[in-house]
Simulated scan of single mutants.
Amino acid sequence: MTSPSSPDDGAPDSPRPPRWLPRALAMGVVAVFVGIFAWNALGALNGLFVNLLIAFFIALVLEPGTVWLVRRGWRRGLAAAATLLGSLVVVIVLIVLFGNLFVQQLVALAQSVPRLYASVQLFLVERFDVVVPDTQNLLRQALEEFGDDVASGALLVGTTLVGGLLATLTILLVSYYLLAAGPRFRAAVCGWLTPARQQEVLHLWEVTQAKVSDYIGSRVVLAAVSTVVTFAFLAILGTPYSVPLAVFVGVVSQFVPTIGAYLGGALPTMVALTAQGWPQAVGVLAFVIAYQQFENLYLAPKVSARALEMNAAVSLLVVLAFGAVFGVLGAFLALPVAATIQATATTYFRRHELVESHMFRDPDVEV
């Protein structure tokens, strides 16, 4: 029994702190350090998460081909290996056929950058009286800033090559595992869920599988068509570096929403302007606009009839957000991720009929 002259610790009139305070402070410090460690660990695993995401979407794209082979009597593992290796062979063949020409023209384009920059610099001075720094000043500043980091830069390049090789192997192995496991992987995931949840997850998986594979497939087809048509036009026009410019236009126009076509068309237009003149530049610009209209009105609806369509503003925001967080790969993965999110939303959220309101339509024209 505590005497009145020595009140309990933690009482309002006690000079001592509560007995639980040191333990609470220690637990708070431990929680802070654990949080810092978890945050740093997530940052270090950022690249691994991106690789796993790439492997997951590769598996989604190749799943229809694997299922097609399984239906014709192939074993699941052999069918997965055939679809994955067949895709790699196609990519390697394309690189072998067009890689040499692509690299040569890309190197020539890089060597012509100073001349193109000088032409743009002269154009800005003559037309708008805007003075931009000379190439020599830019090179001097670059050497002053990065000249002391040559050794570290070479080490960084070597580390990047090794990291890229490891990332590629990781993506291929995980993709093969997801393709080869197939139903067993889905069964392992659903084994932790109730029967009702299993039905929801399987339905969502099926919807995501169909929508994302169709979406990525349609983007690849449209990018290939855009690349071939653009290359043919630039070759007929005589624009230099037609191969890398056509690839740039095809990839950017399909995987950067809303503004991708105009970003992709800006580079060949500038090259035609500086290397050939105003008529050729106007011709390239007119071709880019005309082809974009043809693709939007006729080609894309036929190729992507079953693909998941997204609001242009939402898809652009998703690309910018993923690019800021995960870099270039994140920007390319943003559209499949957005397609997955939209497939999830259409599965779990039901749209309702709209009420009658003037806020849903523009006002009538006043006479």
Rank of each mutant, 00 (worst) to 15 (best):
L179Y: 04
T159V: 10
L245M: 05
L78A: 12
L84E: 03
A334K: 03
A224G: 15
L320Y: 04
T159E: 14
P301L: 01
V150T: 04
V328N: 09
L267A: 01
N51F: 02
P257Y: 03
Y117L: 01
L204V: 09
A224R: 11
G147I: 00
A305G: 09
A142V: 13
E366Y: 08
F255P: 08
V220Q: 01
L267T: 05
Y298Q: 08
L116F: 05
F185D: 01
L193M: 14
G163F: 08
L60S: 05
D8H: 03
F98C: 07
P363I: 06
F98L: 12
F102H: 02
E144L: 13
F56E: 05
G260C: 07
T208C: 12
V251E: 07
L245T: 02
A24W: 03
P363D: 02
T160K: 09
A305Y: 08
R127T: 15
G28L: 15
L173S: 08
L179T: 06
T258E: 11
I36K: 04
T227V: 01
V271A: 00
L169K: 07
L42C: 04
K302M: 14
W39P: 00
V365S: 11
D148S: 15
I216A: 10
A26I: 03
N51T: 02
T347D: 09
R361A: 13
A187N: 11
V228H: 09
H352S: 13
Q342S: 13
A290E: 01
F287R: 10
R350D: 10
A290T: 14
D8M: 09
P363K: 03
L88S: 11
N40W: 10
T168C: 03
L88E: 06
Q209A: 13
